[in-house]
Structures are given as C-alpha cells and as structure tokens.
Nucleic acid binder design. Structure first.
Lengths: 146, 146
DNA sequence: CTATTATAGACTCATCGAATCTATAATAAG
DNA sequence: CTTATTATAGATTCGATGAGTCTATAATAG
C-alpha cells in the first residue's frame, strides 16, 4: 500500500504555487522541470486538481495554473482526496450469512484508523508547510550571519 | 491506495484462530472455505504470519495453524505490518540541491499522519474484536428471548 | 493570425496484486 | 515403515493499474 506519485506531484506543486505572488500563474513546463517529470503527465495531475476546485487554469500566453484560495484554506486532505479518491483503504472481503461487510468489526476498526490519519491530514494546511520553509531559511540566514 | 486482500485474509484468519479453544490448530482448507479463497494462496499469506511470529504451524495429520500468543497481545498493527511491510506510505520524489527528501516538510507531515493511523492500529487488539462479536451475539440472544 | 498554453483521448509499458500449479518436506496414525 | 495429511517453496500466469507518452484539439494574449 502506497500513495501514488500523482499525490506526490500534486502536493509539491500546490506548495510551489503557494510561493508565487498572489494571483500570478505559472505554466506546467517549469513546474515539470523542477520535479523532473514530463509536462504532459503533470498536466494530467493538475487537471484533476482543477476539477477538484483547488487550483484554476488558463490556456494561452500568460496562462498556466494558480491557486484558487489561500494556502491557509488548503489542507493536505483536500489535495490527497482529489488525487486518490474517496474509497476506504480497507474493504472487508468476507461476506456470508453470518458475516456481512456492513457490520464487520475489523472493517470498523480499520475505518477508525484511517479516520485518525485523515483528521491529521485535515489539520495540516499548505500554509504550515510554507511557514516551516520560511523558518528554515530564516534560521539558515542567521547561522550565516553569526 | 488500498490495503491488499492479503491483509484482509490475515486479519480475518487471526480473528478466527482466536475463536478456537486454546492450543487447538486448524488446517488451511476450512479457513480458505470460510473466506472463499484458494487454500494455496491463503497458505502463502499465513506463512508470512508464521515468519512474523504471530502464529505457529505444524505439518501432517492434526497439523495446521494456531495462535502463538493471547489475542490480547496481538494488535492490528502487528498483523498489518507483517503483511504490508514497514515502508512509509509516502515517499517524497523531489530531490535536488535545494530540496532533499530527508528534510521534506511534506514528507514529515505525511509521516505524522501515517503515525496517527498506526497508533490507533496499535491500540486495537484482536481481543477487542472478539469481545464485540460476543456482545453482538449476547444482544441478539437477549432480543430473541425478550 | 500566430505562438503559447491547457485539455482530452488513445495508447504503451512495467509493475504488482492475486492468484494457480506442482513439487517437496514434515508429521501422525495405522 | 508406509501412507495419508498437511504446510512450504518456487515457478508461472493473469489482469489491473500506476505511470507515462504521443497526438490532436481548444482557448487565449499579443
């Protein structure tokens, strides 16, 4: 069980878009170069984010992608669910007259566990990531100065 | 991203073994029939549980599989990690001179989220599942009587 | 009108989950 | 000891899907 690379690209791209001046868009080419992935493939991933309402796109010169809302309002869960979908991680496969999946206690426990993960992903925004980057840069500059 | 069916079979089998009288073993055939899966495939899954030290096996007549410790001491996490392995769910793929995976904040957040899930899976034992089954049966019998 | 950019669809390739099949080894019972 | 029973190991197969390519189309700024 692993997250797909698409999720990887999506999260990093969203974080990068969060670094741009507000309202400014960037094309898929530079985004793809940074992440060492093909532009056509990355555009597929980003299109799913557009459809999920996380980013907005514009074709033509001066087009590209940009965030549609503040980084404070974009959670990890938003991005991940847009890419990975909403199906539960675990799905009980045992189904007979004495045990139906709707009431499987194993299923229930697995759902609870997944929910714990989701709660954390919902609490973590892209803004927090950018803050940590700022902090690291700041610390680095201080150490240089000192 | 999904848990494999092997995890599904492993959890249900462990729970079933927990229902057997202490010390009693059961062959792979009946276990496979219950779960509607081929005996050879299920045996592969169970062999990984043997190697993980969760169950014990014996060949020959009167052989089969049985638990090696109390259901109170077998957690969901034990079973899942035995089958799924220990690799993190997320692995940052962005690696260059300004961003190395070791220090990726996205990676860190994803690891934290995974840990939340694991903590819950570690807190939930097979014994808890069996207790819930007992309770359900008890409730059912009461409703029949009433 | 043209260069630039995103979108869509068909297609390919490799990986891996999910088995199956067969052969081998170990054990209890007769 | 022999035989039936059971687990283990390895090779192999099959299908689904992740990951990506390629090409064509549509939209937009200049």
């Amino acid at each position: 069980m692993k997250y797909t690379k698409a999720t990887n690209y999506a999260l990093h791209t969203i974080a990068y878009l969060g670094l741009l001046p507000s309202g400014k868009a960037i094309g898929v080419k530079p985004l793809a170069e940074i992440q060492k992935v093909s532009p056509t493939y990355l555009s597929k991933v980003l299109t799913t984010l557009v459809k999920a309402g996380l980013i907005i796109s514009a074709p033509g010169v001066k087009g590209g992608y940009r965030l549609i809302k503040d980084v404070e309002d974009i959670t990890f869960l938003d991005v991940i669910q847009a890419v990975e979908g909403l199906n539960p991680l675990f799905h009980c496969s045992l189904d007979n007259h004495v045990h139906d999946r709707e009431n499987c206690f194993i299923q229930q426990t697995m759902n609870e566990a997944e929910k714990k993960m989701e709660e954390h992903l919902h609490s973590q925004t892209i803004a927090l990531v950018l803050q940590k980057i700022d902090q690291r840069v700041s610390d680095y500059l201080k150490s240089e100065a000192g």
